[in-house]
Design a protein around this nucleic acid. Sequence first.
RNA 1: GGCAAGUUACCCAAGCGGCCAAAGGGAUCUGACUGUAAAUCAGACGUUUUCAACUUCGGGGGUUCGAAUCCCUCACUUGCCA
Length: 436
Amino acid sequence: MSDHAIEQLTQQANDPSFPDIWEEISWRGLVHVSTNVDDLKALLAGPPITYYCGFDPTAASLHLGNLVQLLLMRRLQLAGHKPLGLVGGSTGLIGDPRPTAERTLQDASTVAQWVGLLQAQVSRYVSFEGDNAARLVNNLDWTAPLSAIDFLRDVGKHFRVGTMLKKDAVSARLNSDAGISYTEFSYQILQGMDFLELFRSYGCVLQTGGSDQWGNLTSGTDLIHRAEGSHAHAIGTPLITNSDGTKFGKSEGNAVWLDPAMTSPYAFYQFWLNTDDADVIARLKVFTFLTRAEIDELAAAVLAEPFRRAAQKRLAWLVTSLVHGEGATTAAINAADALFGQGELAHLDTATLASALHELPNTTAAASAAIAQLLVDTGLTSSVGESRRAIDQGGVYVNNVRVDDAAATLDGSVLPGGVAVLRRGKKTLAGVFVPE
RNA sequence: GGCAAGUUACCCAAGCGGCCAAAGGGAUCUGACUGUAAAUCAGACGUUUUCAACUUCGGGGGUUCGAAUCCCUCACUUGCCA
């Protein structure tokens, strides 16, 4: 594990002003649905229990939605409970039913590779030290050896089709014109089996997950009840939404990933810095370990001096440090300060400017290169036509000077040190390096 | 297995032989106003060598001067029947 991950873990603590962990996670807005509240509350207040949360390898990295779960795992661990981090080597081969359409199946070798990547990510957010050290499990270990006949006889008998059909994820698809394959229909059984398996081998009695997984969570608690006659619990966290109705966790239409190769620390920091006033306090509760008192203070600051964006800055610093480390966060902030600063890029020293540009999407080109093409090369636009339109609309700047000719080249705009800063709109930046 | 309906751009959704690069809405992007916020108003939103050309309406084939629109076929989806 990287140093900064360990450093982050040692700094974390739950807020001692809450009487118990249940009160704290409720206040943070992490509980949308759960099994019987009184039982669950007593369970969490009692001796250490084992609980689990699963992550399916449907991409090469986890994203911000997963971070909610990782932090909930960590909060429960800090309260003394024992986490199991499950990466779904088998469930990832199937894919849980999305409300809109059937998933495209991934190659088994691709999924296997993603399992490794996700395990590495998960292990950075929980501690593997002490009495309640975290453990990693992979559901492929117990599903792969299972024959189809055993599956149908031993597991399938516990599931009623009527119940399965009523699950939101399934019924939404049945009522849509996309329908659902038997493969995805069966997903809830696999996830139910996981919980039963972990109950048997580790005494795991609680599963957490997003509320969109509620059907899959209860599939496990029901199975444990039927197969073992025991009660297990589940907590569904709310889907994080933006107050303006758009989807949370998207930047420029793409998911915000935890992998710095997929979403740069710079972009990650900017994502959080741009959080709406209306959402920032809720984000602090979910994504940071700040105490209630500290968050209340920031809430007051948002009301009194919104233009300072103190809450946004704190949020961006904390979450970016948590995921990428303080060093990378400082670099991201320095880059932003240099580039968003008061305009005079030429006054920056060349080393500062060059290192700032390395934080951005960048490319290397000759001074004679057309700006319209450079925008495409750096990903600021997706076609030359789009570049031209952006320039015509007055939305493109080189070194903070608006470009007014769609056919312009970089000539004359290269700063000392052989660099140029491209900007689209107010805040989308990229760098160009011009070799001598 | 039989019958019927359907598959349009990032998403939803019109179009039903030429006036279709394809209405409308959402999302997204840009400008103005701002606090690297929200709301609002305006513009853009297939590609390109942009007064024009080129490639699109599930895949393939055909009819026609001309097809997203008609025919055949394949794939997939939904509903009803078995």
